[in-house]
Amino acid sequence: MAWMNFLKPKNQLEEGGRTGASVHSDAGEPERTCPNCHKEIPMSRLWANGLVCACGHHFRMKARQRIAQLCDKGSFRELYAAIKADNPLDFPGYHEKAETARAASGETEAVVCGAAKIGGHKCALFAMEPEFMMGSMGSAVGEKITRLFEYAMRYRLPVVGFTVSGGARMQEGLLSLMQMAKTSAAVKRHSDAGLLYIAVLTDPTTGGVTASFAMEADIILAEPGATVGFAGKRVIEQTTKKALPEGFQTSEFVLEHGFIDAIVPRGQQKKYLADLLAMHDGRAAS
């Protein structure tokens, strides 16, 4: 469905979701309201600053925008672009939901994979797509990520991965759950081969992705203010009947509790990743 790539993202999926969702209209320049400082920011200004508000708030970013911003010019070569799952359980409404997500996001699935260079360093790269069913992991996402780690093993490449996910995709039931096992097994093999994996957790990284490949990297980074956790906040409130502490399940919270290595603002990520890759350069050649 190549024609779908020409459709403009509409953010239909965020209807009734975040107040900060962009409103595209054909008349005039779209603006976004920053959920942190509440200022209206013209999209052109946001673009120029990598979708980061002057106040420091990091807006969600599409997978291909990240790739374009991060990779050396012309270095990205996409892999496994055709892989998609077509409603393996005949789950009611899933086919339509996935097609809507395809139209809205311009992507076939909720992750984009490929080979790339960052600051001259070769790597295998994946970036999850927030506009495709909030980056949920079904069979196709699991298969693409697994193949990417296998590819990286074959060519002795480090893996750099950007996560954004609401968790496992419930419309694929147990098949989605099993992707946690599958991706974890692939990460383990890649790791046992002495190769580097760096994960960058972005808003939100939750559920089955947190409980699998997001938390399995050698070095785990996060963007400022991202939601990072396992269970949903509402579920925890309902279960415990307690108010959640301030800043619960943020990047800052998981850093303080020892589960990530560092918080790296978007503008510094390219250099940070290039430096980390450079320090492991000898590994790839062995």
Binding site: V187, T210, A211
Partner: peptide, 14 residues
């Protein structure tokens, strides 16, 4: 969550 439920599960899977 404070003690890393997601990390604990992930490590077991691996």
């Amino acid at each position: 969550e404070e003690r890393g439920q997601g990390q604990a599960i992930a490590e077991n899977l691996m």
